[in-house]
């Protein structure tokens, strides 16, 4: 899939994310907007996974550790054909399988997540199984930056390096914000690159909202043989909507009618510009 097509998909995904959150009356708006380009590239360009091969033991795996940004994942999986876009109208509704965090009840989702600090250990175990079985699949996991305060992520990192899991790709959605405010003010994370390098990862930086840059970064995996891969994806929380960008208050705020209309207008404009560029 070419870059322009993927860029247009990102715009469409952002619309869907806002529509389903607006319709549901709840959701993690800004975090979904920050990571959706990463999911776009993973599912449409990088990973060997589809509704047709989802039970194949050789498929690539994606585990979303920052489970609260599930609206981005539901949106991308619908577009991949795991279920219809219309099904997402039930998001967060009574007895809907589309709950506010990833669940295996939804076709296409690998693990139930939502409590932070769990995805990396799950991914390490899954990657280790590939090594044991001599399978070539890769395991991708997306962590929030605020999530890195959970010590379990660092326990898992030690194991990833110890078992030389170069089939593991850890992506940090480094938008620098968590629900309370700046990560560096809540409980400082930096120097993240040094920390991850010291824990045994091969680390790459990427603009996590730039499709071309993401394609390039994922294309270099494995970065270093026998080392787990870590991508520090520098993103903007609320990306794509001017008044949502880089503000903590949009962590799980639902847009008003006026805000929603303005956001869709901005996305329509972005779509027009992209098409004109093509």
């Amino acid at each position: 899939m070419d870059v322009q097509t993927l860029q247009l998909k990102s715009v469409a995904y952002r619309k869907t994310i806002l529509e389903i959150i607006k319709q549901s009356g709840a959701g993690h708006t800004a975090g979904s907007l920050s990571c959706v380009d990463i999911l776009n590239v993973l599912y449409n360009h990088v990973m060997n996974v589809s509704p047709e091969n989802f039970t194949d033991p050789n498929r690539d795996r994606y585990i979303q550790s920052k489970g609260h940004s599930v609206e981005a994942l539901y949106t991308v999986l619908a577009d991949k054909g795991f279920y219809s876009r219309e099904a997402l109208a039930t998001l967060n509704k009574y007895q809907s399988k589309f709950i506010g965090h990833p669940t295996r009840k939804v076709y296409g989702i690998e693990q139930n997540t939502g409590a932070l600090g769990h995805g990396l250990s799950l991914a390490v175990g899954t990657a280790l199984a590939a090594k044991k079985d001599g399978r070539s699949y890769r395991v991708y996991t997306l962590l929030g930056d605020g999530e890195l305060a959970e010590g379990s992520s660092w326990e898992a990192s030690m194991t990833a390096a110890h078992y030389q899991l170069d089939n593991l790709v850890v992506i940090i959605d480094r938008n620098t914000l968590q629900i309370t405010g700046r990560t560096e003010e809540v409980n400082g994370l930096e120097p993240l690159e040094d920390k991850f390098t010291a824990f045994g990862y091969a680390v790459r930086h990427v603009d996590g909202n730039d499709i071309t840059a993401l394609i390039d970064a994922f294309g270099q995996v494995p970065f270093v043989p026998n080392k787990p891969n870590l991508i520090l994806a520098h993103t903007v929380k609320g990306k794509g909507i001017s008044f949502m960008e880089d503000t903590a208050k949009w962590h799980h705020r639902v847009p008003s009618d006026e805000e929603f209309a303005k956001a869709i207008e901005e996305l329509n404009l972005a779509e027009v510009k992209l098409k004109a560029a093509v």
Binding site: S121, G125, T126, A127, A129, K132, T159
Partner: peptide
């Protein structure tokens, strides 16, 4: 080859085990 050591880290022990089980182990 059938014993996996994760060190003194019980949370990771269980999470890694769950990942292995999800892949059929």
């Amino acid at each position: 080859d059938q014993l996996i050591e994760v060190g003194i880290a019980e949370q990771n022990l269980v999470g890694v085990s769950a990942g292995l089980a999800s892949a059929g182990k």
